[in-house]
Design a protein around this nucleic acid. Structure first.
Lengths: 207, 207
DNA sequence: GAGGGCAATGTCAGTGACTGACATGCGATC
DNA sequence: GATCGCATGTCAGTCACTGACATTGCCCTC
């Protein structure tokens, strides 16, 4: 009721998550979210550029963490290792929020419009990472490719990490999944076929 | 005027490209596009799910070509090579359309909403490729990672290919850029640092 | 402690994307 | 040439989003 309740932004985010879960994204009007948060539709749009954005408030902080980590890493490592270190550094943020991450991921998966937004946020993270690599002297196209590979690894690892069911004891952390994903990518781009013993004519390497 | 002019869909696509270029995406109303095509707004929405979709009509054909190529490739190659072969197979389609591709890419780059749509289309291509790999017996997570790597390679190669200015003689084709991008990715994920002679302590390879 | 200023919120009116229901004209079929 | 089906048109409505302006609580200063 009171006009001056604090944390308007968080209230809006919470109300939106609840309503998207209860009724679905399309069936929730912005006015509904605002009403549950004790605010008006107009105020919602002062905090979020559009209806989808309310689910992506954590994005800037994540990006900042990635960029700073890359800048702070010691020298003498492959670009892809710098990128991986950056994503590993976010693990302490995510680890205590696994249930929240799971709920949010489930909502995003329900609507293509939300997946679009998720994809462009990931692309923005990738672009920021590429820029941070360039700032360290990594040349193109290595910077772009390493950051794209990083996004692919992160997507896969995050998905595995979120899906891990509460088997209780043997839960792996995000860092584990990130390292596994990188190892698998390395295996995939290794010069010779990966699965099964050799069974085709040898020929000079790709390209 | 006549109600029964043929090719309504193509007329809408052409009108949209023109108007987006002349006025910009936001400044073009769907009713404007329809009017230029000699149709009504309602008819536009019978052909395209939303205003952005009018720029993405080629997506299903592209996806079909990728999937079929992967299914038809001979056995005994790395998954990533199958993926690359699939993208290479699209080259004859793109090659004669470079000016169109350039114009379209420029429009998409002008508006985040269009980039979002582009990203989700690429993700859909990637998902279809991963599925095609699985149908050939490629296991997870190799199928997903190979298809994601393929998308990254395609994005980079396509960008290079489109940007290539009309220097006249020495234009490279899309296949060239695709192969170059794969080679660069392989170099990035190779066990040891890429640039400069060795200058750090050796240690056993990743993982 | 009255006044003034600032920042967050509210109110209102408008535009345009998108949808459902129903009407209408063109072309083919029997 | 009556009928039918499909592409298109018409109309009305909802909702996301925006700009202009009003209001209200809070803090600072004199």
């Amino acid at each position: 009721m009171a006009r001056w309740e604090p944390n308007a932004r968080e209230r809006l985010e919470k109300a939106a998550m609840e309503l998207f879960r209860e009724r679905g994204f399309d069936e929730t009007a912005v006015a509904d979210i605002a009403a549950r948060a004790g605010l008006t539709e107009r105020t919602f749009f002062r905090y979020f550029a559009d209806k989808r954005e309310v689910l992506f408030g954590g994005s800037p902080a994540l990006q900042e963490m990635l960029v700073k980590t890359i800048a702070a890493e010691p020298a003498g490592r492959r670009p892809i290792d710098l990128v991986l270190a950056a994503y590993e550094a976010t693990s302490p943020i995510f680890e205590p929020r696994r249930p929240y991450a799971k709920a949010r991921t489930a909502i995003v998966a329900t609507h293509p419009a939300l997946m679009e937004r998720e994809l462009i946020k990931l692309a923005a993270l990738g672009a920021a990472v590429a820029e941070a690599l360039r700032a360290r002297g990594v040349a193109e196209p290595a910077a772009t490719l390493a950051s794209e590979a990083g996004v692919a690894i992160f997507k896969l690892a995050f998905e595995r990490w979120v899906e891990e069911d509460q088997k209780g004891d043997k839960k792996k952390d995000l860092v584990h999944h990130l390292r596994a994903a990188l190892a698998q990518l390395e295996a995939l781009t290794a010069p010779r076929p990966v699965r099964g013993p050799s069974r085709q004519r040898p020929r000079s390497a790709a390209r």
